[in-house]
Amino acid sequence: MDPNTLHFLEDLAKNNEKEWFHENRGRYEEARANFIDFSSEVLEQLKTIQDDLLNTEVKKCILRINRDIRFTKDKRPYKNYFGAGFGPGGSSSGRSDFYLQIEPGGKSFLGGGMWSPSPENMAKWRQEIDYNPDALKSIIYAYEFKNYFKEIAGQQLKTKPKGYEIDHPEIELLKYKELFFYRYYSDKEVCSENFSDEIFKACKLMKPYQDYVNELFFDS
């Protein structure tokens, strides 16, 4: 990615107001175009491993930079980052998709997994772990996966979930209310020539887990 994209986002973080944004709209349009071009590269690579993305247009994957400030005390009008969700039809597929965020200061990341599941899906999740824990564990505890995505993310219950005993052998997995993974990248990595290849590598590693979640929640 172009370093100027990160420079724009750095300046936006310091001047997050409409007047400054309008005065710098030309810089924004250039930065946004650079992010869209990069996201298009990623999407084309993903289409080689995920057939349900074949008809997805990159413009449908790009998130708006405007913040929804209706229900928050934080009235800054703009996000300090660019974001894209790569799912069937775009960022609003409702499935577990690949999410890319570009933000200066080493805050850029690729993430995905089980996020804010419905009570029905949470019940499916725990039932599957109870009946067949090895299917999940063989994915998230695989050496290459664990070496790249260093830790499991997501909130856990403080005690056992209803219907399961505290001495259940998979109690720690059963406690999760959501379970996702992400990998952060330095600004130097983001601006490197092979960054799209790095993101594709991350997506390929994460895909078995994404497939596990989507098959459990939406295809069963």
Rank of each mutant, 00 (worst) to 15 (best):
I69S: 11
A142E: 15
P88S: 14
D130A: 07
R67D: 05
Y148Q: 04
L110Y: 14
D130M: 08
K18C: 01
L53P: 02
K160E: 14
I129H: 07
K124V: 00
W20D: 07
K75T: 12
T72P: 05
K201G: 08
V58D: 02
S91I: 08
N55P: 00
L205A: 11
P119T: 01
N66Y: 15
G106Y: 03
K79A: 03
E128P: 00
G89K: 09
N4Y: 12
G163T: 08
K158C: 09
D211H: 09
L9N: 02
N132L: 03
E17P: 01
I152H: 12
T159G: 10
E193F: 09
K73Y: 08
F21Y: 12
E172F: 03
G154H: 07
M1A: 04
E23M: 12
F35W: 05
N4R: 15
D167Y: 14
T56D: 01
Y182N: 09
W20I: 09
E103R: 12
F180H: 13
K59V: 10
K124C: 01
F71V: 10
S186K: 08
D51C: 02
K160D: 05
Y28G: 01
N24C: 05
E170S: 13
V58S: 00
L110G: 06
L173M: 08
D52T: 03
L9C: 07
E172W: 05
S186W: 07
K60Y: 09
Y182W: 12
K188W: 00
D130G: 03
S40C: 07
I49Y: 03
Q50P: 00
N55K: 13
F180C: 02
K60V: 00
E165A: 14
P161F: 06
D51S: 14
K124D: 07
A135Q: 07
M122V: 01
D130W: 02
F82T: 04
K201R: 15
E120N: 10
K188A: 14
T159H: 12
C191I: 05
Y99H: 11
Q50N: 09
K160Q: 14
A123N: 06
K201M: 11
L100T: 05
L136H: 10
L216G: 08
I36L: 06
E29D: 12
F21P: 06
I139E: 07
L46N: 02
I65H: 04
E128T: 11
T56Q: 01
F145R: 04
L46V: 05
I139N: 02
L46D: 00
L12P: 06
L216D: 12
K59G: 00
N55V: 10
N4P: 00
E144Y: 03
T159S: 15
Y184C: 06
K18D: 02
K160A: 15
K124E: 06
E10K: 15
K160G: 03
R27A: 13
S192V: 04
Q156N: 09
Y28N: 06
